[in-house]
Amino acid sequence: MFGRVGRLSIKIPWKKLGWDPIIIILEDIYISASQRDDGEWSSDAVEKREFAGKKAKIAAAELAKLSRRVCDNHAGQSFISYITAKILDNIQISIRNFHVMFLDMTGDLGHIKLGLKFSSLKIMKQIL
């Protein structure tokens, strides 16, 4: 599996007052997935992936422990929570030209290509 993002833009409003949206724009995204080669199922490759997964779990546990230590200090926690919630509520995401493709070149019937293309997708919070 591989992919690329052609362009990433983040627009942050710098007004003194008010909460204009933070706009994240992703353009020309391409993701290609395919079956693993037989060599990727060898015991060495499987062990390396398992080891990497265990390291990621340990890192996540250490980060959670550090986060709990920081959050145990309640001074200013409500202000930080308020600001974080405001920022997250004001994020808009726009995705343009999103391509996903699956390739199967191991089949006996020939090569199979299956793809989807989205020209535009917007995720935004609408205030009623």
Rank of each mutant, 00 (worst) to 15 (best):
S78K: 11
P21V: 04
D20K: 08
K55R: 13
E47R: 14
F102H: 09
I127H: 10
E50M: 12
G53M: 08
D108I: 06
W19S: 11
A61Q: 09
F98T: 01
K65V: 03
G53K: 07
A64I: 06
L128E: 04
S119H: 11
V100C: 06
C71T: 03
D104T: 02
S78R: 14
K113L: 10
Y30T: 10
K113C: 08
K113E: 13
R96E: 10
L26I: 06
I25S: 13
V5Y: 04
G18L: 07
S81G: 04
T84W: 06
M101Q: 15
L26P: 02
L116R: 01
E50Y: 12
G18W: 06
K48Q: 13
E40P: 06
Q35G: 15
V5E: 06
G39Y: 04
S43W: 09
D89L: 01
D72Y: 05
E40V: 01
Q35P: 02
S32D: 03
I23N: 11
K11P: 00
I25C: 04
W41K: 12
I58R: 12
I91W: 02
A33D: 09
S81I: 05
N97I: 01
K57N: 07
A59P: 00
G18Q: 03
M1T: 08
N73V: 11
E50K: 15
K117E: 08
I93H: 01
L116V: 06
Q77A: 14
G110H: 05
K11T: 15
I24V: 15
D28P: 02
S78A: 14
R7S: 14
S78H: 10
S34N: 11
I12R: 12
L26M: 10
G110P: 03
K11R: 15
I123S: 05
P21S: 14
W19M: 03
L121M: 14
L17C: 04
A60V: 01
I80D: 01
I83E: 01
I83A: 07
K11D: 09
L114A: 10
K125C: 00
V70G: 00
G6S: 07
K54V: 09
L128C: 04
D20V: 01
I93Q: 00
D20F: 04
I24K: 03
H74D: 08
G3M: 11
D104L: 05
A64W: 01
Q92L: 00
F102L: 07
D72F: 05
D72H: 10
S9K: 15
L88F: 13
W41I: 02
S42I: 03
G6T: 11
L116E: 06
E40K: 03
D108N: 06
D28T: 03
V100P: 00
R68W: 02
E50A: 15
M101T: 09
E27A: 09
E47I: 04
Y82I: 00
G53Q: 07
A59H: 05
S9N: 10
I80F: 12
N73Q: 13
D89Q: 12
I22S: 02
M124L: 06
I10C: 08
I127R: 13
Q77D: 10
V100E: 06
M101D: 07
I58E: 11
I83F: 07
K16N: 09
D38N: 07
I112H: 14
G107Y: 08
E27N: 12
L26E: 04
